[in-house]
Design a protein around this nucleic acid. Sequence first.
DNA 1: TTCCATTTCTGACGAACCGTCAAAAAATAG
DNA 2: CTATTTTTTGACGGTTCGTCAGAAATGGAA
Lengths: 247, 247
Amino acid sequence: MKPLSAKQLEIRERERTILDVGQEMLLDRGYAGLTMDRVAEAIGVSKGTIYQHFANKEDLLAAVAVRSADTRASLFERAGTFRGTSRERMTAVGTAAELFFALYPHHEQAERAIRASSLSDKISAKRTVGLESCTFRCFGVATGIARDGIASGDLVLREGQTVEQVCVGLWNLYIGAFLMSDLENFIDEPVVKDPMPTLHANAQVYLDGYGWTAHSTEHDYPATRQRILGEIFPAEARTAGLLESSR
Amino acid sequence: MKPLSAKQLEIRERERTILDVGQEMLLDRGYAGLTMDRVAEAIGVSKGTIYQHFANKEDLLAAVAVRSADTRASLFERAGTFRGTSRERMTAVGTAAELFFALYPHHEQAERAIRASSLSDKISAKRTVGLESCTFRCFGVATGIARDGIASGDLVLREGQTVEQVCVGLWNLYIGAFLMSDLENFIDEPVVKDPMPTLHANAQVYLDGYGWTAHSTEHDYPATRQRILGEIFPAEARTAGLLESSR
DNA sequence: TTCCATTTCTGACGAACCGTCAAAAAATAG
DNA sequence: CTATTTTTTGACGGTTCGTCAGAAATGGAA
C-alpha cells in the first residue's frame, strides 16, 4: 500500500543481510559458532537491533531454514515441469533434492540445530508453519507426479499402497543419504566412497520395486538426469559442479 | 590384572551412572537441558568430578552415543543369527534397527547434537573410532547377509552393483524414516500418520527392486517380522510394545 | 595408632554468551 | 525549529562451561 520510506527499506534489506550472515556462520562454524554478538558485529550494528528482527537465536536459525526450505520447494516445483514420462519427472524431483543439498549445505545443519535445541517453544508459530508449508509444497509436487503415473498406467499400486507411501520412501532414501553424506565428512574411512551415484542407483532400484515403468534396465536414467540438469537447472547445476559441458 | 580397590570400583560404577543420567536428561530435556551442573547435582557429586570422567559436555554426549551404538551393533549381530532365507535375515536386520530406535530414542538426539556442535575437535579420537567401529559392525552383518544371498542365488547383482550399495540404501531408508518420525512429533499435521508400517513396506519394495527372492508378493514378510520379534527379540519387543501375544 | 604421600574431590571463579531495557540517537511530523 | 515517535545502543543480570588451588579422603609405612 504505502510507499516504503528509505528507513524502512534499509530495515528490510538488513533482515536479508542478517540471514545471509547467519547462514554463512552456521555453515562454517556450526551452531555454537553462530553467536548473536558476532552476527551484530559482522553487520556493523548493535546486538539489540538484531533482536528487533528475531526473537532469539533459535528464531533466527528457523528463519534461515525457512528461507532455504522455500528455495527447495521452488526447485521441486520447477522439477515438476520437466517434460517426460512420469518416472522421468519423479527423477527430476530427486535431482532437485540433490541440487538443493549441494547448493545449500547449511540447511541440513539448520534443521538439525533447530531440532536439537527446541522443545518446540522458542520458535514462533510463524516459522513452524512456514517450514510445514514448504514441506507440503515439496510433497505436493511428488504425489502429483505419482498420480499422473497412475493415470497414465506407468505406476500400478497394489492393495494398501498409496502415492504418499511411494513418495515418503523416496524422501526417506534421500534424506538418509544426505545425512550419511555429511556424516562421512567427519570420519576417516567412509562406508561408501561416493554417496551420490549410489543414491541415484538406489532411488531407481526403489522405483523399480514399485514396478514404475520404464524399468531402470530399459531406460537410461543417468542420461535423463543429464537432460534434467541441462534443461531445467542449467545455472544451478553449473554452480554445483554437476553439469559437465562435455557429454 | 590387579584386583580393583573399592574406590576404583566406585569410580567405575559412577561413570555408568553419569551416562545413565546424561542419557535421560538428553531424552527429556534436549541438548540444552543437559547441563554439567545438573548432572553433578543429580549424581550427588561436584562438577569437577564429572570433568574427571569426561573432558567436556560433547565428550559426555559422545560417550552416551557410543554406548548405545554398541548396543545397536549387538542387536544387529543377534539379528544376523535368525534362521531363514537370506532376505528374511536381512529383514531381521531391519527389525533390529527399528527395535533400537524404539528402545533408545535418545540416540538420534545424541548423534544430532554431536554433529550440530562439533567441528570434529572437542570430541576425543577414542569416541570417534568407537562410533565408527560400531557402524562397521552393523554394516558387516548386513553385507555378510547380502553375500550369503548372492552365494545362495537369492540375490543377483547387475553390472556395477555391490553388496555395500544394497546395504547403504537400506540404511538410508531406515535413517531417513527415523529422522522423519521424530520430526513429525513436532508438527501438527504429519505427512504420514503411521511411519513404521510405511517403512516396513518400503524396505520390502526396495529389496524387491534388487530382485532379492522371495519377492514380497510371494512371501509374508510381516509374518516373518513377527517370528523375528518372537524368536530373537522377545524381551526387547515386549518392552517396546511391538510384540502382541495374540496373533 | 599416627604420619605422610598420593589420589580424589570441591566449589568459587573467569570467560563466553543470551536476552533485556533504560537511556540516547535518529527519524518523522507539525 | 520543536515535539513526538521510532530506532538504536551497550551495559547489565543470569546462566552455563570448564579450570584450578586448596581441602578432603585414601592407602600404606612406621
